[in-house]
Design a binder for these strands. Sequence first.
DNA 1: GTCTATAAATAGATAGAC
DNA 2: GTCTATCTATTTATAGAC
Lengths: 217, 217
Amino acid sequence: MIKELGTNEVVTSRMSGDERRSQILQVAIRLFSQNGFNGTTTKEIARMAGVSEAMVFRHFATKSELYHAILDYKVCEGGTKNPPWENPVMKRAIEERDDYAVFYNFGVGALLHHKEDVDFMRLLFYSALDEHELSQMFFDQFVSRIYEFIGSYIRQRQAEGAMREVEPGIVVRAFLGMLIHHSLNNILWDKKRRLLDVTDEKAARSFAEILLNGIKK
Amino acid sequence: MIKELGTNEVVTSRMSGDERRSQILQVAIRLFSQNGFNGTTTKEIARMAGVSEAMVFRHFATKSELYHAILDYKVCEGGTKNPPWENPVMKRAIEERDDYAVFYNFGVGALLHHKEDVDFMRLLFYSALDEHELSQMFFDQFVSRIYEFIGSYIRQRQAEGAMREVEPGIVVRAFLGMLIHHSLNNILWDKKRRLLDVTDEKAARSFAEILLNGIKK
DNA sequence: GTCTATAAATAGATAGAC
DNA sequence: GTCTATCTATTTATAGAC
């Protein structure tokens, strides 16, 4: 936290309001994600952002408002950032009825996404345990769309006689279960004692194969 | 909290030390499970147990010690309470190489177990996010054994030519993923907006079918 | 916009009477 | 074993100077 060195004043600071707000937000994301809402103090956020606590409360009236702003930001970001069904590779695979490409690409995308945003995964689980409204919102907005999207693809392939008549919702849950559980293991437990050490590509490949063989006619 | 009614003194209290300790523990399990470590106050625990805060600290020197005692208790209970491989139905199924019975029974057992001990599931996830040592301990003690157990069954069936050569660890992760993710959904999100409404039996049946078809030769 | 100082509330933990 | 009272540290949040 360099401020002054004799006459050579090194100015790190005096950001604009929006910059400062955004910086506090970024710091807070990391801390809330690491320690949860109750495990994070405003003092700590201020210290990590290199400002006084009063500054935090100037930008966000209460700690809850700050938390809300974070989840809001993250949920929106996650909800808009290229959903799988707008990925051209996926679109093509769907048109061509290349089941394996559909599920493999979806899977590998999900696993990479989880790995790139561990903070968000942790925030999401913390807020789900805390029963924060925004966790439910994320599910209503984002997860339910995935169920609809993959579910409808499966329904179509069943109608075309390519897949067995299993309830699509269960199939989606099975597939998402493999993927999310795998990421969850990587984030929460496998750090210390690896039960399973595979690349994302190999995991996605295996999960897609198991699922598709499991439901093909 | 009935204490006295005129001369008719209704004695609810004066438990023995062990009874009181155990009662505080039960109350604390519920509260920690609902609100996590940092979200639960010793005051609240005391109030819910109907004793003063001083009593809580007589039985458990610190809040951390109380938390540790809970996880310890739960991890031991969970680790010893009839592991799947000691269930006679499972044993029989394994001997008879009835793959479907093996996976279905394991699955339905797991789902029921999760449903019966939601508190423990929540505690486990909270403590995993908090990176509490006992969460890791549970994995090392209990989850890794499941990987060994199911993994070795799969390896055997592969040697016998009944299953494809997929890495057993991945298959176990896929199956546990379906089960745990399903329970997690039921606990955390599906309360309000059900994405999927099926009985444990149907879910376990579908998951077992998908997995076994997915890896059979 | 930023700080120092501080208020107000709540947290975990202890002392000592009964 | 149990309570009341209290202590100390921490936490959220605000006031007011620059």
